[in-house]
Structures are given as structure tokens and as C-alpha cells.
């Protein structure tokens, strides 16, 4: 017993300070990078030109816009606004549903753990193509192809939904708990049964959440792509601003805000319920 305790060093022989090892080991590299970042920041700030006279001239013009908001006019362009909102909501809902319907097979095909290599590569390419352009650029393309109006908007948003939903769904499928898949596979289940019993229950809450989220992104996007001619409330907003009718524009923006808030709250509620 006594012998044993002699072998253990007393507390005073241990170091009493400890520091977390730094992320970048070499001090030269570490401080060099700090210095470089600092230089870049200083040079960057020096190149920014601020024209104070333009800022001061801009303030009153901005004020006209803001005062339009203080007195939004819902009525004088009421018919156009109502028409635009209806068009946008139709566009949003139809494109989201079409997008979800197309995303599910593409998403399943783009999941490495379920799809064979050729299908995986095809589906990943579809996703990459639909994701490579911003909505506005796709909208311009579709307006050129099918003409002005909500059809172009519907096509744009459907494509954008595929890029978003199929990618996130595929990644969610790749992250599922493999032991559950293994268990269903070991019962002798077919591929479709495997999807239905092992994959779907695991990804469904996230798929519903993402779909709700995409619904409200699509509504916001519908307002933006309207500006390039793809119909909906965006077109109405664009006309109002072009005619300097800031009071009508303000009314439109307020309606957009209210609809986005509503869909935000309802999608949050639904996402909580499906966990």
C-alpha cells in the first residue's frame, strides 16, 4: 500500500496551466494570416467612395417613397392588385405542387444509398442544372419562350422548386439511419416497400417542412419574377413603381408582407406538428 502511493507523483509535480491547441499550429502562418486580413480590410475601406451630396439629395426622394407607405392606397388600383395577388397565389400553389411531385422521384434518384450509379448521376445533373441559374434569369428565359404572363412564372418556380427540394431531399435520404433500412431489407422487402417502410417515415417530417418553406419562398419569388414579365403581383408592383404611384406600391408591399407572415406562421405550426 505504502509502496504503491510512492510511485504516484504529488500534485505539485503536475503542470497547473493548460491552453487549447490553436487551430493553425504554426505561429508565423497564424499571425501572418491575421495581418493579411487586417491589411485587406484597411485597403478595402480606403477604396469605398462615399458621395455625401448624392446621399443628401437622395434623402428627400426616399422620403416620398416612405410617405407613400404612411398612406397606402389599396383602392384606386384595387382591381389590378386583387388580380395580381390571385395570379401570384395560383402560380405559387400550382408550381409548388408540381415541383414537389417532380422533386420526389428526382430526390430519391439522387440519393447515393438508394439509386444505382447511372440514375444517381442523371438525377444529380438535373438538380445541378436547375440550381445553376437564379430564378430571375430562368424567368427571363421562359418569358422569351412562352411569352409574358403567369405561365412563365409557373414554369420558373417549378424548376426552382426541383433544384431546392430534390437536392435537400436527396441529402436527407443519404443521412437516414441505415440500420432501419437494413432491418426492412432483411425481411425480404422489395425496393418500393423499402422506400415506403424504411425511408419515407424517416424523411417525411423534413419533406413536409421543406415543402411548406418552399411554398413561402415561391410566393416571395413570384413577386420578384413578376418584375421581369412573369405575371402575378410583381408585374402589378412594377407598373405602380413605374408610374410613381408609391401609395399603390406601398399597398402591394404591405399585402405581400402580410401574406408572407401568414405563411411563415402557418408553416412553422405545421412543421412543429409533424415532428
Amino acid at each position: 500500500m505504502f509502496e504503491h502511493s510512492q510511485q504516484i507523483p504529488t500534485a505539485s509535480e503536475y503542470p497547473t496551466t493548460w491552453k487549447r491547441p490553436p487551430f493553425i499550429r504554426s505561429p508565423w502562418l497564424r499571425y501572418g494570416l491575421y495581418l493579411l486580413a487586417l491589411c485587406y480590410l484597411v485597403i478595402g475601406f480606403n477604396t469605398v467612395e462615399i458621395n455625401w451630396t448624392r446621399v443628401s439629395e437622395g434623402i428627400p426622394r426616399g422620403w416620398i417613397f416612405v410617405s407613400g407607405f404612411l398612406a397606402p392606397d389599396f383602392l384606386s388600383r384595387g382591381g389590378d392588385i386583387w388580380q395580381g395577388i390571385k395570379e401570384s397565389l395560383t402560380m405559387t400553389l400550382t408550381s409548388t405542387i408540381a415541383g414537389i411531385a417532380l422533386s420526389i422521384p428526382i430526390g430519391v434518384g439522387a440519393a447515393r444509398n438508394l439509386a444505382p450509379m447511372p440514375i444517381y448521376l442523371t438525377c444529380r445533373s438535373i438538380i445541378a442544372i436547375t440550381r445553376s441559374f437564379q430564378e430571375i434569369i430562368i424567368a427571363i428565359l421562359f418569358v422569351a419562350m412562352v411569352g409574358f404572363g403567369p405561365l412563365a412564372g409557373f414554369l420558373t418556380l417549378t424548376l426552382a422548386t426541383i433544384g431546392f427540394l430534390a437536392k435537400l431531399l436527396a441529402e436527407d435520404i443519404e443521412d437516414i439511419d441505415e440500420s432501419q433500412t437494413e432491418a426492412i431489407r432483411s425481411t425480404g422487402a422489395s425496393w418500393l416497400q423499402l422506400i415506403n417502410y424504411a425511408v419515407q417515415p424517416q424523411v417525411m417530417p423534413r419533406l413536409i417542412g421543406l415543402s411548406m418553406y418552399r411554398l413561402d419562398i415561391n410566393f416571395r419569388e413570384s413577386a420578384v419574377i413578376g418584375i421581369v414579365g412573369a405575371g402575378g403581383i410583381g408585374a402589378t408592383l412594377n407598373t405602380a413603381i413605374d408610374r410613381y404611384e408609391f401609395d399603390s406600391a406601398a399597398a402591394i408591399l404591405l399585402i405581400i408582407i402580410v401574406i408572407v407572415l401568414l405563411s411563415e406562421y402557418s408553416s412553422g405550426y405545421i412543421r412543429n406538428r409533424v415532428q
Partner: peptide
């Protein structure tokens, strides 16, 4: 596979 049933360490039930 139908004739060989498997039982797992972490149970591997489909949780939901």
C-alpha cells in the same frame, strides 16, 4: 431472406 429473420443491437425499428 424471408426465412432468415434478423434482430439487431440498436433494435433498428422504424422509429416513426
Amino acid at each position: 431472406r424471408r426465412r432468415m429473420a434478423m434482430i439487431f443491437q440498436e433494435f433498428a425499428l422504424v422509429e416513426r
